[in-house]
Write a protein that binds this DNA or RNA. Sequence first.
RNA 1: GGUCCCGUAGCUCAGCUGGAUAGAGUGUUCGCCUCCGAAGCGAAAGGUCGCGCGUUCGAAUCGCGCCGGGACCA
Length: 581
Amino acid sequence: MNLFSDIRALVLDCLRAMQAEGALPAGLELDAVTVEPPRDAAHGDMATNAAMVLARPAGLQPRAIATDLAQRLADDPRIAAADVAGPGFLNLRLAPGVWQALVAAVLAQGDAYGRSDMGAGRRVNVEFVSANPTGPMHVAHARGAVVGDALARLMAFAGHEVTREYYINDGGAQVDVLARSAFERYREAHGLEPAIAEGLYPGDYLIPVGRILKDRFGDTLLERPEAEWLTQVREIATEAMMAMIRDDLAQLGVTMDVYFSEKSLYGTGRIEAALKRLTDAGLIYEGVLEPPKGKRPEDWEPREQTLFRSTAHGDDVDRPVKKSDGSWTYFAPDIAYHFDKIERGFDLLIDVFGADHGGYVKRMKAAVSALSDGRVTLEVRLVQLVRLFKDGQPFKMSKRAGTFVTLRDLIDEVGADVVRFVMLTRKNDAPLDFDFARALEQSKDNPVFYVQYAHARVASVMRKAAAAGAAVDDAALAGADLALLGDPAQIALAQKIAQWPRQVEVAARAGEPHRIATYLSELAAEFHALWNRGNDDPALRFLDEGAPEAELAKIALARATGVVISTGLGILGVTPADELR
RNA sequence: GGUCCCGUAGCUCAGCUGGAUAGAGUGUUCGCCUCCGAAGCGAAAGGUCGCGCGUUCGAAUCGCGCCGGGACCA
């Protein structure tokens, strides 16, 4: 049940009736007509812009259209009042029965309430995290992981068929560095002094890998030249790193459907196949790039390279896919990987990247456009930095010194639910400040607890009612006389609940899961406000043994709130709490 | 030099594919627990939505140009 789309359908019916009677010209485009919650609650429950957007194409005064439309809408039993306001807005007030029916519908649908079919089963691939398999996940990865995961859940809830995917960068020079670093730990496992040279990974997390290598190879590799052990050590070290990363992700509540290895693209003809597609389209040529503007000419030497004519698909300059020495650039396997995704039949590709990859966006979009003949869209969501604070003091990290804050540290400190929610309170492209102390604080300036607290209050009401002998299962609640919910504060809460399906669609369309977090905070605020009204007016207290019928109706409203909070937190990947400790 | 992102209350940020008097938290001031979890609620105060021009019945939102901050650029 989506009240806003229901009422919009009613508005459209009335407009069509006006067309049929000649009050409006036939053939008007009605798509721009919206039904939205008004910014100011004093304006009513909903507002429609119909008269405003149709006035010009219809050649009529907006207020004339609005007045006619208002009379027709008022004939519907769901509409209590329809008032023309301002230049031609139509403010609607709904009959109390509409809100009451909504509560019943929420209870009947449970966690399916708000689910949308707007995705129409379109297949979406969400690629996220894709951290290099050279160490544990740290805080910067965490945000990408949380945003990507919540986005995937949101898209699925909105009716898309979603695949979550991790691209393992196991084909480049960095995994060779990993292998050399692990080899030093292998030597260390034999009692030798490790030589962690500049540029190697110094972190302790490779010490166990050294032991694994010792168990596996004994001392047989110790005196061999690098060329004889590099491949084997690289493979074992990479596997160990991926096991660690999967475990980190699991701790955060993130599971992937597909782990895709970059290495699997090499030596298998898959890069060549993707580039052939571009060659056949006439988009590959040998050439020399212009020096980038602002770079000194002496830093630039012209080289002939194999270039992708990405400018034909919206990029600013053409991009090299093969260097002058004949080796692939980083871009080439990325092209092949996205070609693979296209061939697997996705309708929409979403890549969640760190903001430092902003420069790659245009070329990747160009590649996807070229490889799919424009059939498949690539959307890139850039995730900005996380600045860590502890008691207001910035927390410095240095990966090279091996002193970075890992995802595991963060989870151990504050818990996965807090990490997830906090990282979803901001737009993905805005920097985020994360303060350990604040995240653990159980007060209103901690948005996690604010929402959880509302949920816990609902659960508390349910527990107490059940303990007092009331039947509070959803079936009993759905049978409550909801007409008893007439107080403005109760209606306001129901209105907020009614907005949930709309919020889901708006968030999914924008690809912005943080909107769910924002909405949940607003819903919780509405609930807390009503709760506190019980201090002034005992009739608004949820528990009221003296009036069992009214109590049942109020518990039904509380329960409906709890259902939406629980569902919303589910999209964010946060566990709803029945009790706070 | 170019590309992308950001600029909204003292501070941190929301702001719905353009809508009415721009919102919340925090901080400041003042109220509310005999009572469902006060981990909460209410009120006051706080704004040239970086600046300018344009599109529009209407712009924080869209376009162009500046200013300031960040990221990236074989």
